[in-house]
């Protein structure tokens, strides 16, 4: 046990006793198994989506995928309705999140003193911790009547605009954090060089730091969109989408997103059942959503890696 106490150390002493190496091996196996569960989870997600999606795709009438609207109970599964809804809500969200998130990141990274940072950054983190149901209710009970309907009198109580703003608030912290990380990883040498040739701080920030961090900013943008597309509860509560919805591009009116279509189908039916392929359509939408966000996340990952490689 205590090799130090012995006058001489032989090679055998250093090898460690059998019990310890056995523990070591066992631990390694257990840890590896734990790490593999995440792979198993990915496989399980894909498998659970795949089966029913295949049933849906192989049995659905193709014409019903391009019709007047998303009415799973009538056998109308118009993809463009829910995809457009998702895109519109995400677009509104980005209109809110990009200026606010990016501005916050610029201030935190380039202007804030250490002390200011210490107080301001946790606020963003607390905002990030607010559950989406809370923002959904806030969007319905406050943003819609007090903001959206005040500015646009023709907006309905449930609207994609109000939901989009709610989703936007939700992704501000994400946008801000990733952007700030990107800007902070720009080496100070660049800033110093810029200052040295007489550039003002604003010039340095806009012409040097932001272009240098652009990959990271793009990544932040993509991750934020991905999160906005995947957000469910805000849209479910505030966009007024129920079991079905006609194709609509009016953000001031109610609308249906991929996520809300899934949630309202499950909420409306308890067991998630219905006529013919209604149940399977839930999985089909889930698969669409999964692929959408997967592509976005992979793209964002690539941009993030580009930043890391650059500096």
């Amino acid at each position: 046990m205590l090799p130090v106490a012995q006058p001489r150390i032989s090679l055998a002493d250093l090898r460690g006793d059998r019990r310890r190496t056995r523990t070591e091996k066992l631990v390694r196996i257990l840890l590896f198994a734990a790490a593999l569960t995440s792979v198993a989870i990915s496989a399980a997600i894909i498998l659970s989506l795949l089966g029913q999606t295949w049933t849906f795709v192989s049995q659905v009438e193709l014409s019903s995928l391009w019709s007047d609207g998303w009415f799973p109970r009538r056998g109308q599964y118009d993809i463009k309705t829910i995809v457009t809804g998702s895109i519109l809500v995400s677009a509104v969200a980005m209109v809110v999140a990009v200026p606010l998130g990016l501005g916050a990141a610029v201030y935190l990274s380039e202007y804030a003193s250490q002390r200011a940072r210490k107080w301001l950054k946790p606020t963003l983190e607390i905002l990030a911790g607010i559950p989406s149901v809370v923002l959904g209710f806030f969007a319905l009970a406050f943003i819609s009547p007090q903001v959206v309907q005040r500015i646009f009198s023709e907006a309905t109580a449930f609207s994609m605009a109000a939901a989009g703003i709610g989703v936007g608030i939700l992704v501000i912290p994400l946008m801000a954090t990733i952007s700030e990380d990107a800007m902070r990883s720009v080496p100070d040498a660049l800033r110093e060089a810029s200052t040295g040739v007489g550039a003002r701080k604003i010039t340095t920030t806009v012409k040097v730091v932001i272009p240098a961090a652009v990959s990271g900013l793009v990544a932040a943008f993509i991750v934020a969109i991905s999160r906005a597309i995947g957000e469910t509860m805000v849209v479910f509560i505030a966009a007024g989408a129920t079991g079905g919805s006609l194709f609509s591009t009016d953000v001031l009116g109610p609308g249906q997103t991929m996520t809300a279509a899934m949630a309202s189908q499950a909420a409306g039916t308890d067991q998630v059942r219905g006529e013919a392929l209604t149940f399977q359509s839930l999985f089909f939408v889930g698969m669409l959503l999964f692929l959408f966000t997967l592509v976005l996340n992979l793209a964002a990952d690539r941009f993030v890696r580009r930043v890391r490689q650059a500096y």
């Binding site: 990915s42 997600i45 989506l49 996520t259 999964f290 997967l294």
Partner: peptide
């Protein structure tokens, strides 16, 4: 592979976990 897999899992929308 595990690393990429985990980062992608983190980006999967919560409603999809509901399907699982």
């Amino acid at each position: 592979f595990i690393d990429v897999n985990i980062r992608n899992l983190a980006g999967v929308p919560s409603v999809v976990y509901g399907i699982l």
